[in-house]
Design a protein around this nucleic acid. Sequence first.
DNA 1: AGATTGACTGCAT
DNA 2: CATGCAGCCAATC
Length: 118
Amino acid sequence: MSQPSPGRPGRTTGVHENIHSVVRRIPSGRVATYGQVAAFEGSCTPRMVGYAMASIPSGSDVPWHRVINSKGTISLSPGSDGQQFQRAMLESEGVVFDERGRVDLKLFGWNGPGLKRG
DNA sequence: AGATTGACTGCAT
DNA sequence: CATGCAGCCAATC
């Protein structure tokens, strides 16, 4: 796998790559919050995650649609193309949305690669 | 070089 | 549930 950033976890730049890698680890049918991704990445903040998401080009292999905010809702504006795409994509993976467009994080929330069934 | 922004989070009111 | 405030730090102008 390409590793554009050298083995320096303390590096500030290149956070996108790290975040993208973490997002890529989110299994299908699961969603993770920005805070979770940030916490799992280990050295970035939710802000950086959101920024990295916006930096993901279309066609990327990063399942950015599996990243939502702590409220279990899609951060993008409701009605926006990206928002509709994200919701449609999640539903297609088995994620169920509430009538108000919310996801139950305790059902579909990603617990990290350490958790396998439960 | 400084100022502004941003797909966030958490707590208080 | 809406609003306000503080913390976070890279990207952008």
